[in-house]
Each structure stands twice: as structure tokens, then as C-alpha cells.
């Protein structure tokens, strides 16, 4: 009889790292110059958008930028 995986208990390969704290989740990544994105959403549940100004965030950090999308 050939070995079959169907119906068999298959040990998971990822368990060891998760159980020892060596898994790497997104928030565990630390790269040189790493930065974070922040999304600003409307604080109003129902409103008309007339304009979006991004001037206030430009210039805080020269290498970072703001983008807007509707």
C-alpha cells in the first residue's frame, strides 16, 4: 500500500517558530529607514468632500510624502 496524505494527520511545519516566538509578522519587521503609512479617512459619516489639503503634512519629513485619493 502506498503512503497517502489523504485523511492523515500532517504535522505543521510552521508551528515550531510560532511556539518559540520566532515567527515574523508584519509588525515584527525592522528594516533600515523603515517608515509607516497612515491613512486619514473622513471623520464624518455623511458629508460632501469639497477639497482635501495635504499642505500641512508636507515638509515635516522631506523624504516622505503625502498622497490623496477620493
Amino acid at each position: 500500500m502506498t503512503t497517502s496524505l489523504i485523511g492523515a494527520r500532517v504535522p505543521r511545519k510552521e508551528d515550531y517558530r510560532f511556539l518559540t516566538g520566532s515567527g515574523q509578522y508584519t509588525d515584527d519587521v525592522a528594516l533600515p529607514g523603515q517608515t509607516y503609512a497612515a491613512f486619514v479617512r473622513s471623520p464624518h459619516a455623511h458629508a460632501n468632500i469639497r477639497r482635501i489639503t495635504i499642505d500641512s503634512c508636507s515638509g515635516i519629513t522631506p523624504d516622505l510624502s503625502c498622497a490623496r485619493a477620493i
Binding site: P11, R12, E14, D15, Y16, R17, F18, L19, G23, Y25
Partner: peptide, 11 residues
């Protein structure tokens, strides 16, 4: 935990 499948995503 490993033997009893006590974890899935592991977070």
C-alpha cells in the same frame, strides 16, 4: 500545543 493543533495563525 503542537501535538493538539492548538495554534493556527500563531499570533
Amino acid at each position: 500545543f503542537k501535538e493538539n493543533h492548538g495554534l493556527q495563525c500563531g499570533f
